[in-house]
Design a protein around this nucleic acid. Sequence first.
DNA 1: CCAAAAGTGTTGGTTCTACACCCATGA
DNA 2: TCATGGGTGTAGAACCAACACTTTTGG
Lengths: 231, 231
Amino acid sequence: METILPKFDSVFSIDCVIFGFQANELKILLIERNEEPFKGWRALPGYIVKKDESIDDAAERILYELTGLRDLHMEQFHTFGDVDRHPQGRVITIAYYALIRIDVQKELKPVTNIAKSAFWYPVNELGKLPFDHAKVFETGFQKLRRRLGYQPIAFELLPEKFTLTQLQTLYEAILNKKLDKRNFRKKMLSYGFLKELDEKQKGVSYRAAKLYRFDRRKYNKIFQNELSING
Amino acid sequence: METILPKFDSVFSIDCVIFGFQANELKILLIERNEEPFKGWRALPGYIVKKDESIDDAAERILYELTGLRDLHMEQFHTFGDVDRHPQGRVITIAYYALIRIDVQKELKPVTNIAKSAFWYPVNELGKLPFDHAKVFETGFQKLRRRLGYQPIAFELLPEKFTLTQLQTLYEAILNKKLDKRNFRKKMLSYGFLKELDEKQKGVSYRAAKLYRFDRRKYNKIFQNELSING
DNA sequence: CCAAAAGTGTTGGTTCTACACCCATGA
DNA sequence: TCATGGGTGTAGAACCAACACTTTTGG
């Protein structure tokens, strides 16, 4: 090695946009910050990458430390690198997103005191977020919408067993528009990766709907191909 | 400000995957490195972000300094952050891509001596690249392919006036498969954003083809919509 | 007149969209 | 018996895939 890299103090961070679906609403995971700047604010879970960990590892660790959630499959979607996005110095942040089932069993509990608490918050009521987190969220939401058009990601947000109406409501929440019930069902069923169960919804005061499960094996078999522009 | 960011020496860099099309081949822009490590190797144009510039600005500056090319619209597509991707330290790189017309008038000429030279190189003959540049390139190429499916980006690679066969050849080069001539033409023309010119190809020893131009105004009018999942 | 590429339509299949009523259930 | 959401089919339009021959031009 003959040359030495020019060095300067700079920091990479990770921010996470974690989507969930609860009570027919699309939500994301926020923390209450316990550190300056913006102490006490609701913010995306995010923190600084360590010297010796890859950014993917950092994303997992940070999310876990701030919210107690682990083992979800996150994917980076954009890097934000404006000069003054952080008031205390140059911080470039790599934004990750994931979709998970909101599980009331699983407690949300920060394991560091960087965050005071973690909680699910409806995407339609976010209000003011610190730093450029509003932009980060918006970019992640766009990514989610786009991806919904060509990949079966909705199922990651639903309970294992769900009704077609739940599925449709979720699509409508993400795409922010009404869909036609008959066409939606026809299309979803036509893919062939939904398995109809012998069970029905319970505890509703109207005709109970059939439950379905997403069959990932079938999905993988069917969609080794993907897009195409023609023969 | 009460807290101070933890600091450590770390570096952000930018790498650029710039696509061009020449002699019916898809090419990318490479430099010959004039610095260790990998001095003398062919590599993606890339260098280090300065303290006081945004990553988008850095991308523009770096590409200019290493190749002499300016004012092209680049977009970031992925950030690579494995711990040992750079042999001399922790360097996280943000990868950008762009498509441009290869213009023989425009000389490729580095304006720093970080690069010895810059040149177009066929994507099918890249051989070994330093660092994780092979992965960077491959990821960018995928992005290009995908985007071709839903946006009219091919025109950025062609001369202003082009024939439908040239356009088709370009699609075939990017998608790496043969397309049906009649269907291809029908589809392209059906979009309504190609303007047929009164000119024909010159200097060919066979029936000269009509020339077309991409009409961005018409495109913008037609495609304010974009994707959809149904009514 | 030959070689090379330009240019051109149709058919059958698939997918998309729009649209409205009866059914089952619990309260 | 009522209110609520569950569940179902069709017809017309648009789009897609497959396929082969004639025309123009320069050499």
